[in-house]
Design a protein around this nucleic acid. Structure first.
Lengths: 219, 219
DNA sequence: TAGAATTAATTAGTAACATTCACTCACGGT
DNA sequence: ACCGTGAGTGAATGTTACTAATTAATTCTA
């Protein structure tokens, strides 16, 4: 959940429970948007609807959030926090750097397959909202998630399992771009996603490339 | 330009010039939006602004276009037609199927580099508009452009230069996803794009994969 | 060439919706 | 008893996409 920001308790653990308590109205609003997003597109959801679903007044939304979009970014951040927890625990104890990448790919796809709301927000909605790129949530994605993916790649390079003649950041871009795009149609049209099959194919391509090594007339 | 749809002239070429003549107001509106998109985001542009720039009334927009978004899709389609023409002529006479893919990659990146308006519409705006996927423009992208890319891949497979154990459509997804994502940050933040450098790196990865072939302890 | 018919364009709204403003209520501390 | 603060609300407002009714211009045909 983590609706509060990093605790960062100074000195002793001082009134641990009340470090930053969340007002009931705020939580109700967040949950209301989450619920509505299960059934409707973000921009067909009105602030009136959110308020009604939450059982609060419309104006309260603007007490806790800069605007309707800001609320969306908080909801997204919430989902992302939840994902990262699983991410880290799932990556633990995987041996071999290519195996770690395979695992990362599978998890990324699996999250898109199982949390369609989050997948849609990320792939479809937020991308076209210019102020997203000034939000805390975007910052988190760049400084936490994208950096983590980069680490996995860099470790692979250091180990010698991954080639070192392409910049790790470039590899990351290709990886993340492929991941998003292979799920895109399914996310848009609400089709089933098969993480195992997609992972299998993406690893084939990403690890070994499209070139046919058995080609008699080699390049 | 092709503001008219496919001519498809039946019988003889019958009044060739006037097959479907475009009203001046319609063209003015399209050009107005194009001009405005050079300076502003799509959803900060109002219909009033478009009409004013075009020198027509606001209501005229709705004579020629279903709504504001529909107008955008027509503008996009216009840019795409222009691109495809260059695409086909540039691809002509390239020998070797991997070379053709390299050329395709370079052209795609180059268009993103040189037509930022189109790149933004495609990567950022249109994606989040649900009715885009019911538009003629989306249909065109799928049935013309995406199919053309698929052809290039399939020819490569048939020739033996490209591996055949990954579905060609999957290869296309990875290719298009990578292309979009390696330009994404630059498109969002209006940074320079270097087609040569990006093409070089993407081909390295896509053709040969990330695996280090010189790795002593091979997998 | 008159005038019917069709196409181009405009004027003047309207309804929806995000956002804001000024205000009330509850309550913990002194 | 009262001040300060945080939670919450009701009612208004301005913006904006979109529409209905109408007029102007152009093309077609007798």
């Amino acid at each position: 959940m983590s609706l509060t920001y990093a605790p960062r308790m100074k000195e002793q653990n001082y009134k641990l429970d009340a470090v930053e308590t969340i007002p009931p109205g705020k939580k109700k609003i967040i949950d209301a948007l989450k619920a509505l997003l299960e059934k409707k597109e973000f921009d067909t959801i009105t602030t009136a609807e959110i308020a009604q679903t939450a059982g609060v007044s419309e104006a309260l939304i603007y007490k806790y959030f800069k605007d309707k979009r800001d609320l969306l970014y908080v909801v997204l951040r919430d989902y992302l926090d939840e994902y990262l927890a699983r991410f880290e625990s799932d990556l633990k104890g995987i041996e071999g750097h290519l195996n770690r990448i395979r695992r990362l790919i599978w998890m990324h796809i699996h999250v898109y397959a199982s949390n369609r709301v989050m997948a849609k927000i990320l792939s479809l909605v937020v991308r076209g909202l210019p102020d997203f790129y000034a939000s805390e949530t975007y910052d988190w994605i760049v400084t936490v998630y994208a950096r983590r993916v980069l680490n996995v790649i860099e470790e692979g390079i250091r180990s010698g399992e991954i080639r070192s003649d392409v910049p790790p950041k470039f590899i990351r871009q290709v990886l993340l771009g492929s991941l998003e795009h292979i799920c895109l149609r399914e996310v848009i049209f609400d089709k089933e996603i098969d993480p195992d099959e997609l992972t299998e194919n993406l690893c084939k391509l990403l690890f070994r490339g499209i070139e046919n090594r058995d080609n008699p007339q080699a390049t």
